[in-house]
Design a protein around this nucleic acid. Structure first.
Lengths: 157, 157
DNA sequence: GAGATAGTCAATGGTTCTTGACCAATAAAG
DNA sequence: CTTTATTGGTCAAGAACCATTGACTATCTC
Protein backbone atom coordinates (compact mmCIF):
# COMPACT_ATOMS: atom_id res chain seq x y z
CA UNK A 1 0.00 0.00 0.00
CA UNK A 2 2.38 2.66 -1.22
CA UNK A 3 -0.37 5.18 -1.86
CA UNK A 4 -1.66 5.08 1.65
CA UNK A 5 1.83 5.72 2.96
CA UNK A 6 2.19 8.73 0.71
CA UNK A 7 -1.06 10.10 2.09
CA UNK A 8 0.09 9.58 5.64
CA UNK A 9 3.25 11.37 4.70
CA UNK A 10 1.38 14.44 3.51
CA UNK A 11 -0.78 14.43 6.61
CA UNK A 12 2.32 14.35 8.76
CA UNK A 13 3.72 17.25 6.79
CA UNK A 14 0.50 19.20 7.31
CA UNK A 15 0.47 18.53 11.01
CA UNK A 16 4.06 19.68 11.21
CA UNK A 17 3.23 23.04 9.69
CA UNK A 18 2.42 25.88 12.02
CA UNK A 19 0.57 27.64 9.22
CA UNK A 20 -1.59 24.68 8.32
CA UNK A 21 -2.70 24.11 11.89
CA UNK A 22 -3.19 27.82 12.35
CA UNK A 23 -5.41 28.17 9.30
CA UNK A 24 -7.55 25.26 10.40
CA UNK A 25 -7.92 26.71 13.90
CA UNK A 26 -8.76 30.12 12.52
CA UNK A 27 -11.46 28.72 10.26
CA UNK A 28 -13.03 26.70 13.05
CA UNK A 29 -12.99 29.63 15.43
CA UNK A 30 -14.41 31.95 12.82
CA UNK A 31 -17.20 29.52 12.11
CA UNK A 32 -18.05 29.22 15.79
CA UNK A 33 -18.00 32.98 16.17
CA UNK A 34 -20.20 33.71 13.19
CA UNK A 35 -22.69 31.13 14.32
CA UNK A 36 -22.76 32.58 17.83
CA UNK A 37 -23.31 36.13 16.57
CA UNK A 38 -26.03 35.21 14.11
CA UNK A 39 -27.83 32.97 16.55
CA UNK A 40 -28.88 36.03 18.55
CA UNK A 41 -31.37 38.65 17.62
CA UNK A 42 -30.34 42.25 17.19
CA UNK A 43 -28.11 41.82 14.21
CA UNK A 44 -30.20 40.56 11.31
CA UNK A 45 -27.51 38.85 9.32
CA UNK A 46 -23.89 39.41 9.99
CA UNK A 47 -21.82 38.46 6.99
CA UNK A 48 -18.11 38.26 6.45
CA UNK A 49 -18.09 41.45 4.40
CA UNK A 50 -19.45 43.44 7.32
CA UNK A 51 -16.92 42.03 9.72
CA UNK A 52 -14.18 42.81 7.25
CA UNK A 53 -15.23 46.41 6.82
CA UNK A 54 -15.89 47.45 10.40
CA UNK A 55 -12.29 47.43 11.59
CA UNK A 56 -11.40 50.14 9.09
CA UNK A 57 -13.85 52.60 10.65
CA UNK A 58 -11.54 53.39 13.51
CA UNK A 59 -11.41 57.10 12.82
CA UNK A 60 -14.19 58.81 14.83
CA UNK A 61 -14.32 61.54 12.17
CA UNK A 62 -15.32 58.94 9.62
CA UNK A 63 -13.55 57.41 6.66
CA UNK A 64 -14.01 58.13 2.98
CA UNK A 65 -15.39 55.45 0.70
CA UNK A 66 -12.34 55.57 -1.53
CA UNK A 67 -10.14 55.06 1.48
CA UNK A 68 -12.21 52.07 2.61
CA UNK A 69 -11.98 50.60 -0.87
CA UNK A 70 -8.23 51.01 -0.90
CA UNK A 71 -7.91 49.46 2.55
CA UNK A 72 -9.97 46.47 1.50
CA UNK A 73 -8.25 46.16 -1.84
CA UNK A 74 -11.41 46.46 -3.93
CA UNK A 75 -13.13 49.14 -6.00
CA UNK A 76 -15.32 51.76 -4.39
CA UNK A 77 -18.30 50.31 -6.22
CA UNK A 78 -17.78 47.08 -4.35
CA UNK A 79 -17.80 48.88 -1.03
CA UNK A 80 -21.02 50.74 -1.67
CA UNK A 81 -23.55 47.94 -1.15
CA UNK A 82 -21.81 46.97 2.05
CA UNK A 83 -21.94 50.39 3.64
CA UNK A 84 -25.48 50.77 2.34
CA UNK A 85 -26.49 47.71 4.31
CA UNK A 86 -24.59 48.83 7.36
CA UNK A 87 -26.23 52.24 7.12
CA UNK A 88 -29.68 50.72 6.77
CA UNK A 89 -29.08 48.70 9.88
CA UNK A 90 -27.77 51.75 11.67
CA UNK A 91 -24.22 50.64 12.25
CA UNK A 92 -22.81 53.54 10.29
CA UNK A 93 -23.91 57.02 9.37
CA UNK A 94 -22.97 58.67 6.09
CA UNK A 95 -22.13 62.33 6.46
CA UNK A 96 -20.93 64.96 4.07
CA UNK A 97 -17.27 65.76 4.36
CA UNK A 98 -16.81 69.27 5.77
CA UNK A 99 -13.55 69.73 3.88
CA UNK A 100 -14.64 68.43 0.51
CA UNK A 101 -18.11 68.73 -0.94
CA UNK A 102 -17.56 65.75 -3.23
CA UNK A 103 -16.64 63.39 -0.47
CA UNK A 104 -18.67 61.61 2.18
CA UNK A 105 -17.57 60.24 5.46
CA UNK A 106 -18.66 56.86 6.77
CA UNK A 107 -18.94 57.18 10.51
CA UNK A 108 -19.30 54.32 12.95
CA UNK A 109 -22.37 54.86 15.11
CA UNK A 110 -23.01 53.85 18.69
CA UNK A 111 -24.97 50.91 17.38
CA UNK A 112 -22.10 49.86 15.12
CA UNK A 113 -19.73 50.05 18.02
CA UNK A 114 -22.11 47.95 20.06
CA UNK A 115 -22.19 45.40 17.26
CA UNK A 116 -18.41 45.16 17.28
CA UNK A 117 -18.46 44.81 21.02
CA UNK A 118 -21.13 42.16 20.79
CA UNK A 119 -19.21 40.15 18.23
CA UNK A 120 -16.03 40.28 20.24
CA UNK A 121 -17.87 39.33 23.40
CA UNK A 122 -19.12 36.23 21.66
CA UNK A 123 -15.56 35.35 20.76
CA UNK A 124 -14.47 35.87 24.34
CA UNK A 125 -17.17 33.47 25.45
CA UNK A 126 -15.75 30.84 23.13
CA UNK A 127 -12.31 31.70 24.51
CA UNK A 128 -13.54 30.68 27.93
CA UNK A 129 -14.92 27.38 26.71
CA UNK A 130 -11.57 26.72 25.08
CA UNK A 131 -9.63 27.70 28.15
CA UNK A 132 -11.61 25.29 30.25
CA UNK A 133 -10.32 22.42 28.15
CA UNK A 134 -6.90 23.69 27.23
CA UNK A 135 -5.97 24.97 30.68
CA UNK A 136 -5.70 28.54 31.92
CA UNK A 137 -1.94 28.66 31.85
CA UNK A 138 -1.68 27.23 28.35
CA UNK A 139 -4.36 29.57 27.06
CA UNK A 140 -2.60 32.60 28.46
CA UNK A 141 0.66 31.47 26.94
CA UNK A 142 -0.98 30.77 23.60
CA UNK A 143 -2.58 34.18 23.59
CA UNK A 144 0.74 35.86 24.25
CA UNK A 145 2.53 33.99 21.51
CA UNK A 146 -0.31 34.56 19.09
CA UNK A 147 -0.28 38.27 19.71
CA UNK A 148 3.40 38.34 18.84
CA UNK A 149 2.73 36.20 15.79
CA UNK A 150 0.14 38.66 14.58
CA UNK A 151 2.72 41.43 14.66
CA UNK A 152 5.18 39.25 12.78
CA UNK A 153 2.64 38.35 10.12
CA UNK A 154 1.59 41.95 9.63
CA UNK A 155 5.23 42.92 9.12
CA UNK A 156 5.85 39.99 6.78
CA UNK A 157 3.42 41.12 4.08
CA UNK B 1 -13.98 62.44 23.54
CA UNK B 2 -16.15 59.72 24.98
CA UNK B 3 -16.64 58.01 21.64
CA UNK B 4 -12.95 57.57 21.05
CA UNK B 5 -12.59 55.99 24.45
CA UNK B 6 -15.36 53.54 23.67
CA UNK B 7 -13.57 52.56 20.49
CA UNK B 8 -10.31 52.06 22.33
CA UNK B 9 -12.23 49.92 24.74
CA UNK B 10 -13.48 47.63 22.01
CA UNK B 11 -10.04 47.39 20.50
CA UNK B 12 -8.65 46.38 23.86
CA UNK B 13 -11.36 43.76 24.14
CA UNK B 14 -10.48 42.43 20.70
CA UNK B 15 -6.81 42.25 21.48
CA UNK B 16 -7.63 40.39 24.68
CA UNK B 17 -9.51 37.70 22.81
CA UNK B 18 -7.61 34.62 21.80
CA UNK B 19 -10.20 33.93 19.11
CA UNK B 20 -10.01 37.38 17.58
CA UNK B 21 -6.24 37.32 17.31
CA UNK B 22 -6.36 33.75 16.06
CA UNK B 23 -8.82 34.55 13.30
CA UNK B 24 -6.72 37.48 12.12
CA UNK B 25 -3.58 35.34 12.10
CA UNK B 26 -5.33 32.57 10.22
CA UNK B 27 -6.59 34.94 7.56
CA UNK B 28 -3.18 36.50 7.06
CA UNK B 29 -1.49 33.14 6.86
CA UNK B 30 -4.08 31.80 4.47
CA UNK B 31 -3.63 34.79 2.22
CA UNK B 32 0.13 34.36 2.19
CA UNK B 33 -0.25 30.66 1.45
CA UNK B 34 -2.71 31.07 -1.39
CA UNK B 35 -0.55 33.70 -2.96
CA UNK B 36 2.53 31.49 -2.70
CA UNK B 37 0.75 28.51 -4.25
CA UNK B 38 -0.75 30.45 -7.12
CA UNK B 39 2.45 32.29 -7.88
CA UNK B 40 3.96 29.07 -9.21
CA UNK B 41 3.12 27.21 -12.32
CA UNK B 42 1.78 23.67 -12.24
CA UNK B 43 -1.49 24.37 -10.56
CA UNK B 44 -3.49 26.66 -12.83
CA UNK B 45 -5.70 28.30 -10.28
CA UNK B 46 -5.99 27.00 -6.79
CA UNK B 47 -9.14 28.29 -5.19
CA UNK B 48 -10.49 27.99 -1.69
CA UNK B 49 -13.07 25.42 -2.76
CA UNK B 50 -10.40 23.05 -3.92
CA UNK B 51 -8.40 23.40 -0.75
CA UNK B 52 -11.56 22.79 1.24
CA UNK B 53 -12.48 19.64 -0.62
CA UNK B 54 -9.11 17.88 -0.82
CA UNK B 55 -8.81 17.00 2.87
CA UNK B 56 -11.94 14.88 2.66
CA UNK B 57 -10.40 12.56 0.07
CA UNK B 58 -8.35 10.72 2.65
CA UNK B 59 -9.82 7.33 1.85
CA UNK B 60 -7.63 5.67 -0.81
CA UNK B 61 -10.69 3.73 -2.01
CA UNK B 62 -12.34 7.01 -2.88
CA UNK B 63 -15.27 8.90 -1.42
CA UNK B 64 -18.82 9.20 -2.69
CA UNK B 65 -20.12 12.53 -3.85
CA UNK B 66 -22.97 12.44 -1.38
CA UNK B 67 -20.51 11.83 1.41
CA UNK B 68 -18.36 14.75 0.30
CA UNK B 69 -21.41 16.97 0.19
CA UNK B 70 -22.40 15.97 3.69
CA UNK B 71 -18.87 16.54 4.98
CA UNK B 72 -18.78 20.01 3.46
CA UNK B 73 -22.30 20.82 4.55
CA UNK B 74 -23.61 21.58 1.06
CA UNK B 75 -25.71 19.84 -1.54
CA UNK B 76 -24.25 17.29 -3.89
CA UNK B 77 -24.99 19.61 -6.79
CA UNK B 78 -22.64 22.15 -5.26
CA UNK B 79 -19.84 19.61 -5.08
CA UNK B 80 -20.10 18.56 -8.68
CA UNK B 81 -18.46 21.51 -10.42
CA UNK B 82 -15.61 21.36 -7.95
CA UNK B 83 -14.76 17.73 -8.51
CA UNK B 84 -15.25 18.29 -12.24
CA UNK B 85 -12.53 20.93 -12.16
CA UNK B 86 -10.30 18.77 -10.03
CA UNK B 87 -10.84 15.85 -12.38
CA UNK B 88 -10.08 17.98 -15.41
CA UNK B 89 -6.84 19.05 -13.84
CA UNK B 90 -6.07 15.48 -12.91
CA UNK B 91 -6.10 15.80 -9.14
CA UNK B 92 -8.89 13.26 -8.78
CA UNK B 93 -10.22 10.35 -10.77
CA UNK B 94 -13.88 9.41 -10.83
CA UNK B 95 -14.47 5.69 -10.75
CA UNK B 96 -17.56 3.54 -10.62
CA UNK B 97 -18.29 2.10 -7.22
CA UNK B 98 -17.77 -1.67 -7.23
CA UNK B 99 -20.41 -2.19 -4.56
CA UNK B 100 -23.13 0.04 -5.95
CA UNK B 101 -23.71 0.65 -9.62
CA UNK B 102 -25.42 3.97 -8.94
CA UNK B 103 -22.54 5.42 -7.00
CA UNK B 104 -19.19 6.83 -8.07
CA UNK B 105 -16.04 7.15 -6.09
CA UNK B 106 -13.87 10.24 -6.18
CA UNK B 107 -10.30 9.09 -5.82
CA UNK B 108 -7.31 11.29 -5.11
CA UNK B 109 -4.64 10.76 -7.78
CA UNK B 110 -0.89 10.96 -7.51
CA UNK B 111 -1.11 14.43 -8.99
CA UNK B 112 -3.69 15.51 -6.43
CA UNK B 113 -1.50 14.21 -3.68
CA UNK B 114 1.41 16.13 -5.13
CA UNK B 115 -0.72 19.27 -5.14
CA UNK B 116 -1.52 18.85 -1.46
CA UNK B 117 2.13 18.27 -0.76
CA UNK B 118 3.08 21.33 -2.77
CA UNK B 119 0.58 23.54 -0.96
CA UNK B 120 1.74 22.38 2.42
CA UNK B 121 5.37 22.84 1.46
CA UNK B 122 4.60 26.45 0.64
CA UNK B 123 3.10 26.86 4.09
CA UNK B 124 6.17 25.32 5.66
CA UNK B 125 8.32 27.85 3.83
CA UNK B 126 6.29 30.64 5.35
CA UNK B 127 6.64 28.89 8.70
CA UNK B 128 10.37 29.27 8.40
CA UNK B 129 10.14 32.96 7.62
CA UNK B 130 7.94 33.37 10.67
CA UNK B 131 10.25 31.35 12.87
CA UNK B 132 13.16 33.55 11.92
CA UNK B 133 11.39 36.53 13.42
CA UNK B 134 9.49 34.90 16.22
CA UNK B 135 12.30 32.72 17.46
CA UNK B 136 12.76 28.98 17.13
CA UNK B 137 11.81 28.17 20.68
CA UNK B 138 8.69 30.31 20.61
CA UNK B 139 7.63 28.88 17.29
CA UNK B 140 7.98 25.34 18.53
CA UNK B 141 6.00 26.16 21.61
CA UNK B 142 3.33 27.92 19.59
CA UNK B 143 3.04 24.96 17.28
CA UNK B 144 2.59 22.58 20.16
CA UNK B 145 -0.10 24.67 21.79
CA UNK B 146 -1.85 25.22 18.50
CA UNK B 147 -1.96 21.52 17.79
CA UNK B 148 -3.63 20.97 21.11
CA UNK B 149 -6.00 23.85 20.40
CA UNK B 150 -7.03 22.26 17.13
CA UNK B 151 -8.05 19.12 18.97
CA UNK B 152 -10.02 21.16 21.47
CA UNK B 153 -11.80 23.11 18.75
CA UNK B 154 -12.69 19.99 16.82
CA UNK B 155 -14.21 18.50 19.94
CA UNK B 156 -16.05 21.71 20.80
CA UNK B 157 -18.29 21.84 17.74
C1' DG C 1 -9.98 76.29 -18.30
C1' DA C 2 -7.47 71.47 -17.85
C1' DG C 3 -7.01 67.70 -15.24
C1' DA C 4 -7.42 64.98 -11.24
C1' DT C 5 -10.54 63.19 -7.57
C1' DA C 6 -15.00 61.55 -4.85
C1' DG C 7 -18.79 59.32 -5.61
C1' DT C 8 -22.91 57.37 -8.16
C1' DC C 9 -25.48 54.71 -11.69
C1' DA C 10 -25.94 50.93 -14.87
C1' DA C 11 -24.74 46.75 -16.77
C1' DT C 12 -22.40 42.68 -16.33
C1' DG C 13 -19.57 38.63 -14.97
C1' DG C 14 -17.95 34.86 -12.07
C1' DT C 15 -18.44 31.82 -8.28
C1' DT C 16 -20.93 29.24 -5.27
C1' DC C 17 -24.93 27.31 -3.89
C1' DT C 18 -29.93 26.24 -4.15
C1' DT C 19 -34.45 24.05 -5.64
C1' DG C 20 -36.92 21.00 -8.65
C1' DA C 21 -37.37 17.44 -11.98
C1' DC C 22 -35.50 13.33 -13.43
C1' DC C 23 -33.12 8.55 -14.15
C1' DA C 24 -31.20 4.36 -12.64
C1' DA C 25 -30.04 1.11 -9.18
C1' DT C 26 -30.80 -0.73 -4.66
C1' DA C 27 -33.50 -2.33 -0.63
C1' DA C 28 -37.63 -3.59 1.71
C1' DA C 29 -42.16 -5.76 1.70
C1' DG C 30 -45.88 -7.93 0.16
C1' DC D 1 -40.95 -11.73 -8.10
C1' DT D 2 -43.08 -7.79 -8.48
C1' DT D 3 -44.31 -3.39 -6.25
C1' DT D 4 -42.79 0.52 -3.65
C1' DA D 5 -39.79 3.49 -1.38
C1' DT D 6 -35.17 5.02 -0.87
C1' DT D 7 -30.79 6.36 -2.40
C1' DG D 8 -26.78 8.07 -5.67
C1' DG D 9 -26.17 10.97 -9.12
C1' DT D 10 -27.21 14.21 -13.05
C1' DC D 11 -29.41 18.07 -15.59
C1' DA D 12 -31.40 22.62 -15.78
C1' DA D 13 -32.61 27.02 -14.14
C1' DG D 14 -31.80 30.46 -11.21
C1' DA D 15 -30.76 33.14 -6.87
C1' DA D 16 -27.33 35.42 -3.84
C1' DC D 17 -23.22 37.58 -3.25
C1' DC D 18 -19.17 39.88 -4.51
C1' DA D 19 -16.81 42.04 -7.57
C1' DT D 20 -15.87 44.16 -12.05
C1' DT D 21 -15.77 47.87 -16.16
C1' DG D 22 -17.59 52.00 -18.25
C1' DA D 23 -19.89 56.26 -18.32
C1' DC D 24 -21.32 60.18 -15.84
C1' DT D 25 -21.75 64.34 -12.37
C1' DA D 26 -19.87 67.37 -9.19
C1' DT D 27 -16.11 69.32 -7.02
C1' DC D 28 -11.52 70.49 -6.11
C1' DT D 29 -6.67 71.91 -7.59
C1' DC D 30 -3.42 74.16 -10.41
Amino acid sequence: MKKKDALEDVKRLQASSLGYVLIRCGQLFNELGMRAVNSEAGWPMMREVHARLLPYLENPEGVRITELARSLGVTKQAVQPVIAELAEFGAVRIEPDPDDARARRVVLTEKGLAAMRHGTTKLVEIDRRVARRLGAEETRELHGLMTRLLEVLKALD
